[in-house]
Amino acid sequence: MNRTLIWLFALGIFFLSPFIGAVNLELSDILHADTLSAQIFYELRLPRVIFTFFAGLVLALSGLLFQTLFRNPLMTPYTLGISSGATLGAGIAIKLGMSSVIFGIAATSFFGFLGALLTIFLLLFLSRYLQGSQQTSLLLLGIALSLFYNSALMIIFYLGDSIQNDMLIRFTMGSLSVISWNSPLVLAVVAVFFTSIIYSYRFELQLLSISEESALMKGLESKKIVFWLLFLSSICIGILVSICGPIGFIGLLVPHIIAKLYQQSIEKRIMKTAFFGGFFLIFCDTIARALPTQSEIPIGIITALIGGPFFIYLIISKNKGV
């Protein structure tokens, strides 16, 4: 019952969201193709909602993936510093004024997922030197890397001129304002690809959620699969972050909400987490647009305001052994 209501609410937000914002639109407006309202709807709002949906999907799913692979509810690309790595990469590209296209990909995107990949390799490399309570140490490594990246980004700020800095600040706080259909389409392809890979590995993930050792004893080449899935999700996160900046806490919140709501094994939660992630980010974005502020509040701030306290709750409840 609760579940149905939540999904209905999510769907409701999905359909209402494009009409809400600095200019509220009416259904009748969008039926006439040549009005300003129709233009806003088709060129700004709709691409944005679609983009937001897939962004939320990738974030939530990669959260679930990381939590399963590391068997820890606090693991996400964001808490492990992978998002920060991508941000720094993209930030460098912005600072260097790179607007060119490498291998058919925008330079910021390319640098973004280079940053994400570099971070995951660094984490995997460093984790070989960890002993004992590996998971906690890995999390601390991620946080250390985040801090390091942030400082590096600060240096870029000091070197930049005010126009670049304005772009950078907007970028580092996360922004879903996409113009035209380019980014939503790119992200849609990435998200569908990502989701189908994760879904096709659902039984392997379920095995890995027990332990790498037991997965190995069941005939799963754990190390290979873990590496491949982390590699893949880093690419996806890299692309996502390079377009919309780092958006935190979705990967933490959504898998947890779905787990509490359904109480099913991970394998059965994959698709639910993916879809709910999409709807949840649309919900957050709708709040950001609906608030009557001078300029739009960056989405990263909204998700952090909701997610920060939740993160603390997770740490406390984890220590209680819940």
Binding site: Q206, I210, Q263
Partner: peptide, 15 residues
């Protein structure tokens, strides 16, 4: 030791 607190005995045995 397991991370997924909702996995059922039936699913576990099937592994």
């Amino acid at each position: 030791e397991f991370y997924d607190e909702f996995i059922t005995l039936e699913e576990f045995v099937l592994f």
